[in-house]
Amino acid sequence: MERDPPLVLDIDGTLTRPEGWGIDPRLFDPLLEWEAPVVIATGKAFPYPVALCHFAGIPELVVAENGGAVYTGDDVFFTADRDAAEAVAREYEAAGYSLGWGPEDTVNRWRETEIAVQHDQPVEPLREIADGYGLEVVDTGYAYHVKDPAPNKGDGVRTIAEHTNLDLEEAVAVGDSENDVSTFEVVGRSFAVGNADDAARGAADEVLEDVHADATLGVIERVRSA
């Protein structure tokens, strides 16, 4: 009997409900029953995907903050620090702009390696300021992420593979954004959901018609072991 392949799954736009917000609960049982490793690879702050794994009942294999934070289940690796991104955020605010998340800012409160700016905020001044610090701005479709150019999700997935029994050649990835391109490049098979941006569509082995969690559920059913 064939084995389930490892899965590498983005969150926003990929595990979310068809209307685009909140994890689709239909995913919990298939992921809990999956026999191979499931890696959650996301731009969200480090605690969020760890909590998702915890509450879904699956091993905590996490690439967070676009590769800036990686958890292998035993060890945590931080591949960048937040200092420069924090400086960009303060300069952006001093120029009269806002990060957009309100005073409590739970989006950034627990970030270790980058800063996220709400998608409705001006991006060009943000890019200009970030460039002065040697950082890049990645548009995930849900936020602008100010980050070190070096780490990415694909590198984080490689790190997990080096510390676990995850076979990258057998792995299947699903994503929706430019920050998933590096993931698509390191796995054996990749899918862009129907709501994916042009970068993800161009990098994926296949672009799906269905969107959000409907698309991911379809992939899971297709690649499930016989």
Rank of each mutant, 00 (worst) to 15 (best):
E221K: 08
V146H: 08
T106R: 15
G134V: 12
G218I: 03
V70R: 02
A130L: 02
A69Y: 11
R3Q: 11
V137A: 07
A94S: 07
D24F: 04
L208F: 09
A51W: 14
P151N: 02
L52H: 00
L15P: 00
A150R: 15
K147Q: 13
E170G: 15
A192M: 09
P59W: 02
A192I: 11
E60H: 03
G20S: 06
L27E: 04
P59K: 03
Y144H: 14
S182E: 12
A85W: 06
P59F: 01
R222D: 05
A41I: 11
N165I: 14
D83E: 15
D29S: 13
D180C: 06
P122Y: 05
V38G: 00
P103F: 05
A192L: 08
G156E: 01
N66M: 01
D210F: 04
V50I: 15
E124G: 06
V138I: 14
P59C: 02
P47W: 04
V62E: 06
E93V: 10
P37S: 13
T42V: 07
L135K: 07
G188C: 06
G194V: 10
R222T: 01
V223E: 00
H212I: 05
H145C: 12
G132A: 11
P37F: 06
Y48C: 02
D198T: 14
V62F: 07
L208E: 05
V186A: 06
T164W: 11
R82A: 07
L135F: 13
Y71R: 03
F191A: 05
R222F: 04
G156L: 01
A45T: 11
V223M: 01
D214W: 07
S190G: 12
G132N: 11
Y142A: 15
Y48V: 12
W34N: 08
E93R: 10
E114N: 15
V146R: 03
V137Q: 07
S98P: 02
R127N: 10
P151T: 04
T16M: 13
Y48T: 09
T113W: 01
Y97L: 04
V211T: 15
T42S: 14
G96M: 07
D214K: 01
D139S: 08
D155N: 12
E178Y: 08
E221Q: 06
V50G: 10
D4Q: 07
A213H: 00
T14E: 08
N152R: 00
A80R: 03
F28H: 13
S182Y: 03
A130G: 05
A192G: 08
D197N: 14
E170D: 14
H119S: 15
D205G: 15
L9Y: 00
I160L: 08
T216W: 11
T140C: 07
N195D: 12
P122R: 03
G156Y: 01
P149S: 10
L15A: 06
V174S: 02
E112T: 13
E136A: 14
G68V: 04
T16Q: 11
Y142M: 14
D12I: 01
G96A: 07
Y142Q: 11
G134P: 04
T159I: 15
T183I: 12
